[in-house]
Simulated assay, not measured.
Amino acid sequence: MLNFVLFGPPGAGKGTQSEKLIEKYQLIHISTGDLFRAHIKNQTPLGQKVSQFIADGQLVPDGITIDMLEEEVDKNPDAKGFIFDGFPRTIPQAEVLDEFLASKGSGIAGVIAFDVDQEELTKRVAIRQKESGRVDDQADKIQKRIDEYFNKIIHVLPYYDAQNKLTRVNGIGNIDEIFNTICAVVDKY
């Protein structure tokens, strides 16, 4: 299985590049944010549990996130691979993901981290909020999510760097050029 983690703050381009990767490599995209939003929209019991965390710009507890992610992987037993977007956010989550994938005879092939500066992120998210109306893209909440990334989540990168799985990609520029850079990484596996 060809499994990748896309890493970056809100607005870095993970969703945009995921769409292109799915089309080219026939991978299954698992975005914890998208899954949470779908559960909230459908008012599932899980959605009711996580809605307040997301509304406040906080991380959903590991147990809920991991259970949901494992369920999504299990729904796709014939997948060529997965793109994990928004997960893992902590080293314990990364370790659990490694253990879970190992139990399936697989693992993370690589981690692609998008480097985008704060000014560009703020611009992109403002545009995205106008276009999509996402509740979690409102100015007060988005800054909290960006700060969360740079203060906490980014500390997962050394975990993958120590395994020689981390590649940093400049996330600013032409979408197709960024995609070609990502494909060069994916094609190594």
Rank of each mutant, 00 (worst) to 15 (best):
E71Q: 12
Q43M: 09
N170F: 02
A94G: 13
E23L: 13
Q143C: 08
E119A: 15
R128I: 07
E177M: 08
E70K: 15
Q52I: 00
D85K: 06
Q118W: 13
R124S: 03
T65M: 10
V156C: 13
F114I: 08
E148H: 14
Q163K: 15
F82C: 04
F7N: 07
A139W: 14
Q58H: 15
R128L: 08
V186A: 09
L21N: 01
D34W: 03
Q17L: 02
A126L: 14
Q163R: 12
A126G: 09
D34T: 01
L166N: 06
A139P: 11
E177T: 07
Q93I: 05
E19M: 13
I178P: 04
D161I: 00
V50A: 01
E131T: 12
D56P: 03
K14H: 05
E148F: 14
F7T: 04
V125E: 02
K80R: 13
D85W: 03
S18R: 01
Y149E: 04
Q26C: 12
G57C: 02
T16F: 05
F4H: 03
F82G: 04
E119Y: 09
P158D: 08
F36D: 03
V73K: 00
G110H: 06
V60L: 04
I146E: 00
T44C: 03
F114M: 13
D67Q: 15
N170Q: 09
D62C: 10
I54K: 00
A94K: 04
R134K: 14
N174T: 00
I127Q: 08
G86Y: 01
I112D: 05
L35W: 04
Y25I: 01
K130N: 14
V156K: 05
D136V: 04
N174L: 00
R145V: 04
G107N: 12
I182V: 12
G110Q: 08
R134T: 01
Q143L: 15
I40H: 00
L21C: 07
S103W: 15
A184S: 14
I142F: 06
D62S: 12
I127N: 07
A113F: 02
K14Q: 07
I146F: 00
D147I: 10
V60R: 00
D137M: 06
K24A: 10
V185M: 09
G33F: 01
D176C: 10
D34V: 02
P158G: 08
V186K: 02
K41H: 10
A55R: 07
I64Y: 10
H155F: 14
K141P: 02
